[in-house]
Amino acid sequence: MSTSSESKPMRLGTVKEACGYGKMGRTKLYEKINEGAIVAFTRGNRTFVDLDSIDAMNARALKPWKPGKKMPDKKGRRRGARVQ
C-alpha cells in the first residue's frame, strides 16, 4: 500500500541514453547540466542523468501554438508573405 509520503522512483539513464532521450548531443547535454537545467548524478566514475529533468526542461521551453497564426518557413518568414 502506498502512502502520500512515498516518492516516485527516479528515472535515471546513462549519458548516451539521455542524449537519445532528449534528442541532443553530449556537448549540449553537458551544457544544460552545467547550467542547472538538467540534473545529473555520479556513481563511481559513471554519470547518470535524471530523465524527468529533461522532460521538465522541455516543458519550460515550450510555447503554445496559437491557431490561425502562420508558421514561419525555414528562413524565418511567414508562409505566404511576399519577399521584396
Rank of each mutant, 00 (worst) to 15 (best):
M1V: 13
M1W: 13
S5I: 07
S7R: 14
S7D: 12
P9C: 08
P9I: 05
R11Y: 08
L12T: 05
G13K: 05
V15F: 01
A18I: 01
C19W: 02
C19Q: 08
C19M: 13
Y21W: 05
M24A: 00
R26F: 08
L29A: 08
L29Y: 01
L29K: 06
L29S: 06
Y30F: 12
Y30L: 07
E31W: 01
I33L: 02
I33G: 05
N34V: 00
E35A: 14
E35D: 15
A37T: 06
A37L: 11
V39E: 12
V39H: 06
V39L: 07
A40T: 09
A40F: 06
R43S: 10
T47W: 05
T47A: 01
F48I: 02
V49L: 08
D50W: 03
S53A: 07
S53R: 08
I54R: 00
D55M: 05
D55E: 14
A56R: 14
N58I: 07
A59E: 11
R60C: 04
R60E: 10
L62M: 07
K63H: 11
P64V: 06
P64M: 02
P67M: 12
P67A: 15
P67S: 14
K69R: 07
K69E: 13
M71I: 15
M71R: 14
P72D: 03
K75P: 00
G76S: 05
G76P: 07
R77Q: 09
R78A: 11
R79Q: 15
R79W: 13
V83C: 00
